[in-house]
Amino acid sequence: MEGIEHRTVEVNGIKMHIAEKGKEGPVVLFLHGFPELWYSWRHQIAALGSLGYRAVAPDLRGYGDTDVPSSVNSYTIFHLVGDIVALIDSLGVDQVFLVAHDWGAIVGWYLCLFRPERVKAYVCLSVPYLPRNPKVKPVDGMRALFGDDYYICRFQELGKMEAEIAKDSSEQVIKSMLTGRTTGPLILPKERFLSHPSTKPLPSWLSQEDVAYYASKFEKTGFSGGLNFYRNLNLNWELTAAWTGAQIKVPLKFITGDSDLVYTSSGTKQYIESGGFKKDVPNLEEVVIQEGVAHFNNQEAAEDISNHIYDFIKKF
């Protein structure tokens, strides 16, 4: 894409691919989710990079043109946050504006928890802060609530999940996941990742060229890297016991769609409306609920997201 440059940096023992636009100005760091890439932020990189900011988006560990360690235990939250701290160091700055979505948002929350001095302000999409429940491991809690076929529980199946995904083309998997509009708990059918591969035309915000780009990268890496983020949820719970009850003190704006499966199925709406979110994140300045928008709001409502980011970070 025009004006976006690509390079590889050494961080935390791995080679990480980053896309960036803008040489000067404050750094805006974008973290993607599953099953995505730096490319998920293409519209925001272009927008913020043209507004005097240095927009930077990596392929996270296990994705795209970044290294894909083979060990499941190489994807703990300490590894993922360590990668981002090293990336910030490599950019030659002390602080960044952080923008993150889905699993990137979770990494972002822990970055704010572990190293808040590195984050000037945070624009978080889709996934709110999930305070640690000292009594229940996260995957165990999800299994009790939604059953064994809940997608995060199914993702724990090492090797088996990869084999199921491989029954469909990477292009079909990407198309179905990015355009899915499930508003309840995401349940995966047994023995098959996609029960009915999508034959619907692509929405206006996602082109065949976009799908092909994602698919080309996942054809190379497979999906194990991304799945391994989920496979460390219980281990992360054990590793982060010392932060039980800790608050996030970074200034924050939260944006989600009213058709996002996270907002509609995991207690997020109640967490926000009850004041629990504000209690855990006292510097939460604004919550934006986008009407008619689903999970991948940085792509579906790209211009609106770019405007929200700029309106928030220009105050600092």
Rank of each mutant, 00 (worst) to 15 (best):
L60D: 00
L60I: 09
L60V: 03
L60C: 08
L60T: 05
R61C: 01
R61N: 04
G62H: 04
G62M: 05
Y63C: 01
Y63S: 02
G64M: 09
G64R: 11
G64F: 04
G64Y: 06
D65M: 09
D65N: 12
T66R: 00
T66Y: 00
T66W: 00
T66I: 06
D67A: 04
V68I: 13
V68W: 00
V68S: 06
P69A: 02
P69R: 06
S70Q: 13
S70Y: 02
S70F: 03
S70T: 12
S71T: 01
S71E: 15
S71A: 15
S71P: 02
S71I: 00
S71N: 13
V72I: 15
V72M: 06
V72R: 15
V72F: 00
N73H: 09
N73I: 05
S74I: 02
S74K: 14
S74L: 03
S74P: 05
S74F: 00
Y75L: 11
Y75I: 13
Y75P: 10
T76V: 13
T76Y: 07
T76A: 05
I77W: 03
I77K: 14
I77H: 01
F78D: 11
H79C: 00
H79Y: 08
L80I: 09
L80T: 05
L80G: 01
L80M: 15
V81W: 06
V81E: 11
V81H: 11
V81R: 11
V81P: 12
G82L: 07
G82R: 13
D83V: 06
I84Q: 14
I84F: 03
I84A: 10
V85G: 06
V85I: 14
A86W: 01
A86G: 12
L87R: 12
I88K: 06
I88P: 10
I88C: 05
S90Q: 13
S90Y: 04
S90P: 09
S90H: 10
S90V: 04
S90N: 15
L91S: 09
L91D: 11
L91Q: 11
L91C: 12
V93H: 10
V93D: 10
V93W: 10
V93I: 08
D94S: 15
D94M: 09
D94V: 05
D94C: 03
D94F: 03
D94R: 15
V96H: 06
V96F: 04
V96T: 12
F97N: 15
V99Q: 09
V99L: 09
A100G: 10
A100I: 02
A100F: 00
H101I: 14
H101W: 10
H101T: 11
H101M: 11
H101Y: 10
D102G: 13
D102Y: 07
